[in-house]
Amino acid sequence: MVISKEKIVGHEEVFLPETDSTNHQLQMLLKSGPVKEGFTVSTAYQHSGRGQMGKHWHSQPGQNILMSFVLYPLSIKAEEQFYLSIAISLGVYDFLSELVPGVSIKWPNDMMVGNEKICGMLIQNTLSGENISNSIIGLGLNVNQINFNSELSFATSLKRLTAKEYNLSACQLRLTDSIDERYKQLKARQFELLKADYIKHLFEISQPHNFLIENQVVRGTIKGVDEYGCLLVEIDGNVLKFKNSEIGFIY
């Protein structure tokens, strides 16, 4: 299914009624031969949906967008990869913010509406030397699911927020359009623009918040991120940098 000559993300798509994980399917496909940039695998249900480092992603069958696509971000180096995360996050942000108010990006790459998570992503790159030879972007976006188990008590969906039922394939088309626009900015190395937009839409930006740092509760204010994606937090008048393993949000 070719939608537009110009479009990269999602220009071709295969739908699997059920699979283990869309990221894994794409990884296997890449091993078996060349795959066009932007090729997308989506599914109604993944029984081994993957989140970060062994965590599972739960989603009720046929209710949500579960998709992965492959990118070849040859214009950016391994060291610059946080801009990839920024571009994808902004693409999802742009899509969501047309439908609901209160969307933000919780550092580094969770999508929030208010205090609830609506979309998660898993980016898996393959590096050869200092180049990113391929990047698999997996997205799980809650659309029509109404009930979430207690483990995901902070989860929400478009339907929960708006009381409307959504057409999944229409949503997916608009989502990939939004991501595609941001990916083009990335390819053009518009790093400053991407970073400024990302910082503008960060969850709790400029709001005093409690963080967990070295097992201590610390009050601080998010100021932004640096070029590697480290979070900049002002604590007692000093701006400090944190990696994702070094700081936690406290609710």
Binding site: Q52, M53, A78, Q81, F82, L84, S85, P108, N109, L122, I123, Q124, N125, T126, L127, S128, G129, S133, Y228, G229, C230, K243, N244
Partner: peptide
Amino acid sequence: AGKVVCIIEAMKLFNEIESE
């Protein structure tokens, strides 16, 4: 060459490192 030898994670981006 091309075999994955480890993963390096940074800011929740997971990088499979291939041997050259």
